[in-house]
Amino acid sequence: MKSIKLEINGVQHEVEVAPWRTLLEVIREELQMTGTKEGCGLGECGACSVLMDGKTVNSCLVLAAEANGKRITTIEGLAQAERLHPIQQSFIDNGGFQCGFCTPGMIMSTKVMLDDNPNPTDDEIKKGISGNLCRCTGYAKIFDSIRAAKVAMAASSDGRGGA
């Protein structure tokens, strides 16, 4: 067993994990944060995307031990209390999901994309989520959601859609 430290959504966790545990397993099973989903377990669908030191990674491919000392953001860390992040609100308002299984990962990829580049072109939007499969929506309403989120975030001084 290895003792590792993870900062998840601003909270410090210290967990004992087997060396062969993935970050996804630790988040979902040890820490019981099940918002992050497992689709393929092989890096191919993006459902397990989380931010690690500000970058999107497939948490199914990251060993928990590799994440030792890292800053992790999961879908649970986006809303502030009852206030949804503008990306979350935009996905609701624009029909950016159906079954919702790809949604946590999709929103994490969107977050990084918009943090990196507040004004992506349509082409950049498509590329930004090219690691996230969605089978339900045909993506059109996801593109709408991201475009609208970009506007909402630009309109707010704190970049979060608030005042």
Binding site: G43, G46, T56, V62, S109, S130, G131, N132
Partner: peptide, 9 residues
Amino acid sequence: MASPQVRNR
């Protein structure tokens, strides 16, 4: 290659 997530790693 792959996806942004895979390329990050």
